[in-house]
């Protein structure tokens, strides 16, 4: 699989920078505008704080922020991983069972319409302030995109490949391992990525509703104390968790399906 990485690393980085300098300029410009517009438009500090102050105050409270990042990060990762562990086999079962496809599948599609986050207060009331209700909310947010994409993935084998595998007499298991599974991976990763993006939403909301630690708890408390600077610092670390999770999924995708067009073009 190493043949995909033809460019030397630094050359690739150089090309990357060359292609993205406009974005870097825009990004820096955005933060400069934020920084100085607060002075120009005379926005009160308790409403919005300049990025420099967010960094300064955030750094002063770094210890607490890092610990809460660990707490929320752990909830997020746990919910995400459990969602994969349950959703993939279920998606597989639905894809290959005509009974499940007619019963469980439409049921899941209906449930998908329900905003999972609306369950958060219920789970908190049932299960208390601990880790479990948060993991369940993250799980619910992640579960549906993964299972629905997995069903799609395992049902999308081309007509030709289906006929080909039947003509070899290779049997269901061999067909699955050598053809169906690798062919399904790209669509599965669509689900993983969608789940990774939304996982932190679940964790934060669950913490807003009932928690005594974590970034969601932190953001709510400091906002109540009229400290938008610290709220932004909390949001920054929450974003960081999402980015890390998304990064892990992207790296896994590159390692597992380097042949797929989305990775090759990336």
């Amino acid at each position: 699989m190493a043949s995909f990485d033809k460019k030397p690393y630094f050359a690739a980085l150089k090309v990357h920078l060359k292609n993205s300098w406009m974005f870097v300029v825009f990004f820096v410009g955005f933060f400069l505008f934020w920084e100085y517009s607060i002075q120009w438009f005379d926005i009160p500090r308790y409403i919005l704080t300049p990025p420099s102050l967010i960094v300064e105050k955030g750094a002063a409270d770094l210890e607490r922020l890092l610990y809460y990042t660990y707490v929320t990060g752990f909830e997020t990762l746990l919910g995400f991983v459990i969602a994969i562990v349950f959703a993939l086999p279920l998606g597989l079962a639905i894809a290959f069972s005509s009974v499940l496809k007619r019963t469980l599948y439409p049921f899941l599609v209906c449930i998908e319409m329900v905003p999972k986050i609306a369950f958060a207060p219920l789970f908190i009331s049932w299960l208390g302030f601990g880790l479990l209700p948060k993991v369940i909310i993250v799980f619910l947010v992640c579960f549906f995109p993964i299972v629905l994409n997995a069903i799609l993935a395992f049902n999308s084998l081309s007509e030709e490949l289906t006929l080909f595998s039947r003509s070899t007499g290779g049997g269901a298991w061999r067909t699955f391992l050598k053809i169906r599974l690798p062919a399904a991976l790209p669509q599965c990763f669509v689900g993983f990525k969608y789940a990774a993006i939304n996982a932190t939403v679940g964790a934060a909301i669950a913490e807003f509703i009932g928690s005594d630690e974590g970034l969601g708890f932190y953001i709510q408390i400091v906002t109540g104390n009229m400290r938008p600077d610290l709220a932004f610092a909390g949001i920054f670390f929450l974003t960081l968790i999402g980015l890390c999770l998304f990064g892990i999924v992207t790296i896994a995708e590159r390692l597992m399906i380097p042949w797929h067009i989305s990775v090759r073009r990336g």
């Binding site: 081309s158 030709e160 490949l161 006929l163 080909f164 039947r166 003509s167 070899t168 007499g169 053809i179 690798p182 062919a183 399906i257 042949w259 797929h260």
Partner: peptide, 18 residues
Amino acid sequence: GPQTDVGIMFQDNTLVPW
């Protein structure tokens, strides 16, 4: 039922990208 002592080819080939 499916014959195994055959070689089949279609207009869209059965080469897998991986």
